[in-house]
């Protein structure tokens, strides 16, 4: 059955009957907790992805690798990351594969792509909250491509670490019309820090935005943040 499904994948295209691929779906579910069966399935998916397939079939495999892929799938997916037609679905898998190799592949792709593809790679790095990427993302905050700079800003906000907040705060000094997105990202960092009980770090960020020179919406957000900090037990005990 699985053999037949992978055979069907070779000619699979928009309009093909998805039922032909059902054995692959079944194998993905049934191989949970069975390393050999899971590895066999992944190997088949990787091998198929290396072959000549339609974009639809490639996309389907990437969807499955998002569920079952490991470090073994990363090199093949990383190659697709650089293609306009495949980059998103490559990230569809890479964003979910927990192996550090997947995170590294996204970081490594950063200098190799531009425009929308770069924005996509950055957004996946942010979604993974990859702290190892803070330095690389920080270097993009003033990118000449405004969409890349914005993506890096939001990704650093999603990572939400002390380091990413610091990078954003430094960049804020020269942010110009990117300022509001950057402040949003810094506030997002403060929320993450607060959620992980790094109250002093969060509080320090919020205080910086309560000055009357800040836009009203920002001052109010910072004030709400400070109030939230004040309700954390660790603050009361200080």
């Amino acid at each position: 059955m699985l053999e037949t499904a992978f055979e069907a994948l070779k000619t699979f295209d928009w309009g093909s009957d998805l039922a032909a691929l059902a054995p692959i779906e079944d194998a993905a579910t049934a191989s949970h907790g069975k390393p050999e069966a899971r590895q066999d399935l992944e190997n088949r998916l990787i091998a198929a992805l290396k072959g000549t397939l339609t974009r639809d079939a490639q996309d389907y495999i990437c969807r499955k690798l998002a569920n079952v892929g490991t470090a073994a799938a990363v090199p093949t997916l990383a190659g697709l990351l650089l293609n306009k037609g495949n980059s998103h679905m490559s990230r569809f898998a890479l964003e979910q594969i927990p192996a550090p190799e997947a995170a590294a592949a996204l970081r490594d792709a950063l200098p190799k792509v531009s425009g929308d593809l770069k924005v996509g790679v950055i957004s996946s790095i942010g979604a993974r909250r990859d702290r190892s990427a803070v330095a690389a993302l920080s270097g993009l905050l003033a990118d000449s491509d405004a969409s890349v700079a914005r993506a890096a800003t939001l990704a650093l906000g999603a990572i939400g670490s002390v380091e990413s907040a610091a990078a954003l705060q430094t960049a804020l000094r020269t942010a110009g019309d990117r300022r509001s997105t950057m402040i949003d990202a810094v506030l997002s960092c403060a929320e993450s820090l607060l959620a992980s009980n790094q109250v002093a770090d969060a509080s320090s960020i919020y205080k910086a935005f309560t000055h009357e020179s800040q836009p009203r919406i920002v001052r109010l957000a910072a004030t709400r943040g400070l109030l939230a900090c004040a309700t954390k037990p660790s603050v009361r005990s200080v």
Partner: peptide, 18 residues
Amino acid sequence: DAEANRMTDRARREPWQL
């Protein structure tokens, strides 16, 4: 359940980002 955790989100097509 690391496998289930893979299903809590999905990559967005560029240039869209949360």
